[in-house]
Simulated scan of single mutants.
Amino acid sequence: MKEQHGPSAGSWSWTCFDGGAQGRADTKGEAVAAVEIAYTRRIVGSDLAR
């Protein structure tokens, strides 16, 4: 979700509801990649490089 207001305006927040992972990213692409990694970790139980 793109932040529209306040000091974090223009950044993206993301969450992977299953597992509780969440964070912020500077771009939509970075947020998408972070969600993909969080989801993969949850599904395969992997400890992927961050």
Rank of each mutant, 00 (worst) to 15 (best):
F17K: 09
Q4K: 13
A33V: 15
Y39Q: 11
T27W: 00
M1P: 15
V32P: 08
G10R: 06
H5E: 11
G23T: 10
D47F: 13
Y39S: 11
A49W: 05
A49L: 09
L48A: 01
G20I: 10
A25S: 15
V32Q: 01
E30I: 06
W14V: 15
C16H: 11
M1W: 09
A21N: 12
A33E: 13
Q4V: 14
V32M: 02
G23W: 01
G19F: 00
S13T: 11
Q22I: 03
Q4A: 11
K28T: 12
D18F: 00
G23E: 05
S46H: 10
G6D: 01
S46N: 03
S11Q: 09
W14L: 11
Y39D: 07
T15N: 07
E30K: 04
S46G: 12
A33S: 15
R50H: 12
R41H: 08
G20V: 02
A25K: 06
S11Y: 03
R50Q: 14
W14P: 05
G6F: 02
C16W: 05
A33I: 12
A49V: 12
T15Q: 09
Y39P: 14
G19Y: 03
S8C: 02
Q4S: 12
I43F: 03
A21R: 04
G19K: 00
D47Y: 10
R42N: 14
Q4T: 15
I37T: 07
G10K: 10
H5R: 09
E30C: 03
A38T: 06
G23A: 09
S8V: 01
G19T: 05
Y39F: 12
K2H: 03
G6A: 03
S46P: 05
A38V: 10
G29Y: 04
D18A: 13
D47I: 11
V32D: 06
A21T: 07
